[in-house]
Amino acid sequence: MKTKIRNTTHLDSHYLAFAFLMICAVIMLFPFIWMILSSFKTAADVYSYPPRWLPSKWNGSNYSKVFNMIPFLRYYWNSIYTTVIMTALQIGISVLAAYSLVHLRWPGQAFMATVMRSSMFVPMVVTMIPMYLLVSSLNLVDTYAGIILPQISTAFTTFLIMSYFASIPQDMIDAAKLDGCGPFRVMTRVVIPNTKGAISTAALFSFLGNWKSYTWPLIITNDEMYRTLPIGLKYLQQESSSEYQVMMAAAVMTILPVLIIFVFFEKQLVRSITLTGMKS
């Protein structure tokens, strides 16, 4: 706990800071409030001057219009499906690799870590052209496999999980070994149960990263039915020609669930962000 020195001059500066922060907070929140209010507006409200802050008549027709214009639920499902599988694969592969690199000994470990570290320096934009050619030669354009597999990058999550695994006391592992546990049971009975919270933090981080993925799904999907949510919304925006009230309804349905989840996971999320920052 922090104990602050309080005196009058400092209190003044705190009030000033608070006023400033509140103004900034209003600016940060304004787009969300505008979005929610506007999703109930009519086209006439949108085009009226002076601007209307509240809908003239609250109606939900913009929401049903979204479903008529685009296969919105299908986009949602595509996003959930690909993100969940990508995250599960990433975390599964990373846990195995992290355990192997931290708690087991085999030749070539240092080299392996170097290759993984260098893979983090190469952004997707560098590899996406050959990857597209590979995926299309395998006839995986417009498939879930084509969306998911090329985006599996595990180096970052592996290093993150490695830092958690390294914090497990060696005594604990030695004790399990003395009890007759082999490498596999040491992992499932000692290492994973003791880092459960940490692994789920890594999973949350990886989930958010995959959820916002944009460039690759844009490249690899032509068929409307395989578009993920970000790609679907981009095309909705291009094709709906300034029907802003409808776009706001789509935005509400995309943003609101995330904000609600955010309220529950904020603490974990903040912790994982600060952890990656402090590590460097």
Partner: peptide, 14 residues
């Protein structure tokens, strides 16, 4: 922090 977590494309519509 909220704008960081909300989806980019959806918020750019606003």
């Amino acid at each position: 922090f909220a704008p960081v977590v909300v989806p980019m494309v959806a918020s750019s519509l606003i």
